[in-house]
Design a protein around this nucleic acid. Structure first.
Lengths: 205, 205
DNA sequence: ACCGATCTTGCCTAGTCGGCAAGTTTGCAC
DNA sequence: GTGCAAACTTGCCGACTAGGCAAGATCGGT
């Protein structure tokens, strides 16, 4: 990708990451509602106003990680060969992004995330992160479909896929000790459309 | 159900409905961001403070209709016989709630709703309404499942079903002139798990 | 008719969101 | 290096929101 970027871009990415991690840490420690934007900004050593330059709300900062992963997922799907059937492209991309994620998650991530579990007003924002890419992902899949009602079917495929992915990750957060990749595979297989033949278990990246 | 309620309950329902409809109308007319809570409250002839007694945000008021329908859906699913396979119970309940909805929607509903289409920050709240019932619905479905990983499978089933329902309705809003019930049927059939045999087309309510 | 529960309303505080205008940092061309 | 333009940070500001609290109004049951 864009390996080398200027100093400016790197600083921006650092600030955004610092804000995101401060938000996650503080929310896990004190509860999401007790944390003010000002506290998050302070923890990241920027002004309250700068926070607003990066995120439009506490919740957006909290789920920035999810947003990044989902955009990465979209990118991976776009990079898969056009000849690949839609569901296969989705599954392979999901497996890859799952593998990638397990690398750059630090130790405290799961713990903090688990402390935010079940908070009612928060789950909404997580789902919002998923639906934000839904239309773009559906548009990409539409290229790979043929037949009637392509638009409806691509949106259904995408929505189903994202829903399964979301449930898999939530299930993993709720039940410690399982292997995320395995849960993701199980979930995707469970909701795979009949059109998608049982995927051969080769690791053709 | 609870046919006869006291005056108090009826008044509460009326104000809640008035607030909801004022919100929908004003948001469609002036754009969702330009409308203040005060304006909505004024249009419904209550104080700004009373609005907060009913809804915790503009968006919650906007999508109150969706929330009601989804809770009704949950109720219908619970009322279906326990012997019915999960996906059948879901599909039948969805068809019924769709039929019911087409009655009590006034003429301007679809028009107003279409004007809110595509607003980015708004779609998030709609999805939130769906996920609010997801866990409850999954819990009900868990009773009807057997085998391994009941929790994961019931959540997957629910998430898939709700995603399909949401996409169907959005598709109907985006593309005027189609029959909602038909779109819902098509969508549900498209994502039906292989375990659910093609449903016989009898109208056993 | 009365009382207690519940609902409405206004007041008030803390917090959020985003425009604006300095002041500062970065990228780049010379 | 120097200088300039674009982009970023920051504080200040006003409009809006969320929700606690208490006074008054309304409803339901006896």
């Amino acid at each position: 990708m864009d390996e080398i970027t200027g100093l400016r871009e790197r600083k921006k990415a650092a600030t955004r990451l610092a804000l995101h991690e401060s938000a996650l840490r503080l929310a896990a420690e004190q509860g999401p509602d007790c944390v003010t934007i000002e506290a998050i900004a302070d923890a990241a050593n920027v002004s309250r106003r700068t926070f607003s330059n990066y995120f439009s709300s506490k919740e957006e900062a909290l789920f920035h990680g999810d947003t990044v992963r989902l955009r990465r997922l979209l990118q991976l799907v776009c990079e898969r060969p056009n000849t690949e059937p839609p569901w296969t492209a989705l599954s392979r991309a999901a497996e890859n992004v799952t593998r990638e994620s397990s690398d750059d998650r630090d130790g405290g991530w799961l713990t903090r995330r688990r402390q935010l579990r079940g908070h009612p007003g928060l789950a909404a924002y997580q789902v919002a992160a998923y639906t934000a890419v839904e239309r773009e992902l559906a548009a990409e899949l539409a290229h790979r479909l043929s037949g009637t009602a392509v638009e409806l079917r691509s949106r259904l495929l995408t929505a189903t896929f994202l829903a399964a992915l979301r449930v898999a990750i939530q299930h993993w957060i709720d039940h410690p000790g399982h292997d995320l990749l395995e849960i993701v595979r199980t979930a995707l297989a469970e909701v795979a459309p009949p059109s998608a033949a049982a995927p051969a278990d080769d690791s053709t990246t």
